[in-house]
């Protein structure tokens, strides 16, 4: 199981701004180790963010997203105290879900 994500959700006017920092190697499958063997690809493929049961962002990623991915987006229709839930699935089927309450 991967390390937890760091999620910050904050009200800015009537919008909720969400910043997520995930902990993931995002291995491209193009690098080689010291023995010359290709390191197999392992990267986050799908990211979903929901708030109050409604999907507020979904994404599909390839190998070229940076290691320990960062993501920022904003949505309306939520209030302080509501929970933002972010989850990802990687190419090995590993999963991680974390949540954060929206700060005022």
């Amino acid at each position: 199981m991967a390390d937890p994500m760091r999620i910050r959700a904050k009200m800015e006017g009537d919008k909720t701004v969400v910043r997520v920092l995930m902990s993931h190697e995002m291995e491209t499958g193009q690098r080689k180790d010291s023995a010359g063997k290709t390191i197999p690809a392992m990267f986050i493929q799908e990211v979903t963010a929901t708030c109050n049961g409604k999907t507020v962002l979904s994404a599909q990623w390839g190998t070229s997203i940076s290691k320990n991915p960062y993501l920022q987006f904003a949505f309306s229709g939520a209030k302080a105290g509501d929970k933002v839930v972010v989850s990802w699935v990687d190419s090995k089927g590993d999963k991680r879900t974390d949540e954060a309450a929206i700060a005022a």
Partner: peptide, 11 residues
Amino acid sequence: GTDPSISTRVK
């Protein structure tokens, strides 16, 4: 309901 605006980091 979501802003058409995203920020991330790529290789």
